[in-house]
Design a protein around this nucleic acid. Structure first.
Lengths: 349, 349
DNA sequence: TTGAAAGCGTTACCAA
DNA sequence: TTGGTAACGCTTTCAA
């Protein structure tokens, strides 16, 4: 029924081994033979059997990309950049490698399930993006999984989450703490004193680091952090909306708002507008990330050195090429966090 | 080195065949035996070899999802919804199936390359999302590919693009023409007469259908379509920005603007703001799609019957289950197009 | 309900 | 440079 390597070999009058060699281009093959083979491939409209190939070669051309939420442009950009990098040399459309994008929803179980699924597929590489869940048990489970993956030859790259000790993985991290500090310091320098903070979900590295940076800035300005001005919630628009309403209820006098990411910032803006407040005249809003739509909602505040897409592209490159990785397997590449915001001086300040 | 089915069989004191049956749950296996096998699987930390399994079974648990631009939230939402539906029964995290998201960038070659790659992987199903390129040669090539895929047992679902004749595929289409007509009619009813139109890229079904709807509405209002008020460009933010500046240059008197999609609308808004115009006081903006961020940029205008995510989820369901498909292989499911907009009465109208 | 064994289509090693 | 041929690890008849 379906055309196999043997059929091609027969038609080209060569052995299956030769056809395989031509297709993989790993071994030297006489030009004439190669032509004959390619012609046969074309005539028979032959398509390699991936599973068979992967079985024999003990590796596949699949690259897993774990994201917290593919519907969030932040991860869409990451996935896109990684995918662009994993294509084979020559940048031929689609390349050889296929990106398997896995939506974890930020759920620990799903993260593990997907890693197992990718292990099952004998994925060539796996890129884990976004903040990690900070739960001791889960961290250990993930570490164990990653260890098993790397032992099986799968390359693992972490992008936006802390390195995992004792694993042959490479981590590319963002300066969440520093970015948050700068952001809040900037607001403080403008005279803001009552600053609300819409934080991400609990038990997440990004949430914690950004919040720590925020607190550092406040502490530096002399004041302690008013805990009633911090509200946690998921990294989505609805959460930004809800949290902002909550904050406005608690502190009608706040003049600035920091959102844990751009998507959350959008929800915050919506809540502020609904409350009749003008941005940034009444309340300044600042968010992280570097999503295109935030340019409209929240004009740029701080420039960044390593755009999100470039960071992700780099992760993709590392996944494909050990050489691209920093020296030492488990190293850390410092990126810069994106910081955007719409800022103004506080009312009566 | 790595644990195989045989190892599990040995430890559980059964034949490999039995282990396979337990793992796949397709054949009846004595409860006691099953327990013993699962125990062995657990103890050995066994992970099935996907490629080997796919080779033997002649099908994989991979589902391809072709999107034009994964960084665009529109497709992110689609990919997300499809992925949520293709997980195995019980909705277990990650399920059995893996979504392979392929970024075509709207390029015909890449679309074909990805289809070949998925064919090579013996994908269980393929979902093509978004508008199709209207190029005779390409259409024929895609049709041929899809035919080959379905013949090989791969289920193919089209979501947001026209059916492909003579193929065993299912299409789920949106009413692009009708949506566009309604949108423009709405603007006309508000008194707008000079309406700019930022169209999508040429040779794309969505571009053509939406533009046709727009022209129908204008024609219905008596006037011919002023061609100088239509500018084409890619479906991205930059294009919306550029096109809007172009339109403002050509017709400083326009009071409304229709953007081919939400992402384009954002760019349009940015250009308008930059020009010192207020939305919707000076210029009304309307866009398609149903992206969360557009709620901020462009308040809702028209409600919709079938939200984008639900449409995509349905496509995912059809991909997995022939029963979910409309009667007749090549049928058409009518969805409703998302229409959003920020509208106001025209200046001095 | 379970086992034996024949593939599934490549790859890669060993010869030639 | 090319061919022969064992694996690769699983699924799936066919028997028992």
């Amino acid at each position: 029924m379906t055309v196999t390597l043997a059929d091609v070999a027969a038609r080209a009058q060569v052995s299956p081994a030769t056809v395989s060699r031509v297709l993989n281009g790993n071994y030297p093959v006489a030009a004439a033979t190669r032509e004959r083979v390619l012609k046969a491939v074309d005539e028979l409209d032959y398509v390699l059997n991936g599973p068979a190939s992967s079985l024999a070669a003990a590796t596949s051309d699949l690259v897993g990309v774990l994201v917290n939420d593919i519907a969030d442009p932040f991860f869409g950009i990451m996935a896109s950049a990684v995918q662009a990098e994993i294509v084979g040399p020559g940048g031929r459309a689609g390349g050889e490698r296929l990106a398997v994008v896995c939506n974890t929803g930020g759920l620990p179980e799903r993260e593990l399930t997907y890693l197992t699924l990718l292990q099952r597929q004998r994925a060539a590489a796996v890129v884990l993006t976004g903040g990690a869940v900070e739960n001791e048990e889960h961290i250990a489970a993930v570490a164990a999984k990653l260890r098993r993956l790397t032992e099986a030859g799968t390359r693992v790259v972490l992008c936006g989450r802390p390195p995992v000790p004792d694993t042959d993985t490479v981590a590319l991290t963002f300066d969440n703490r520093g970015g948050a500090r700068q952001l809040t310091e900037h607001l403080l320098s403008l005279g803001h004193r009552r600053i609300g903070y819409v934080a991400g979900p609990e038990e997440r590295t990004t949430t914690r680091h950004r919040l720590e940076g925020h607190r550092e800035a406040l502490a530096g300005a002399g004041g302690p952090t008013p805990d009633d001005l911090v509200v946690h919630g998921p990294y989505d628009r609805a959460s930004g909306y809800t949290a902002t309403r909550e904050l406005l209820g608690r502190a009608p006098d706040l003049t600035a708002l920091v959102a844990a990411n751009d998507t959350v910032a959008l929800g915050a803006c919506a809540a502020l507008r609904e409350a009749g407040l003008r941005i940034p005249e009444d309340v300044s809003v600042a968010g992280f990330d570097d999503l295109p739509f935030s340019v409209d909602a929240v004009p740029a505040l701080t420039t960044v050195r390593l755009p999100l897409s470039e960071a992700a592209a780099r992760a993709g490159r590392i996944a494909m090429d050990r050489e691209a990785a920093p020296e030492g397997g488990v190293d850390e590449v410092r990126g810069e966090l994106m910081v955007r915001g719409s800022t103004g001086v506080p009312r009566e300040a």
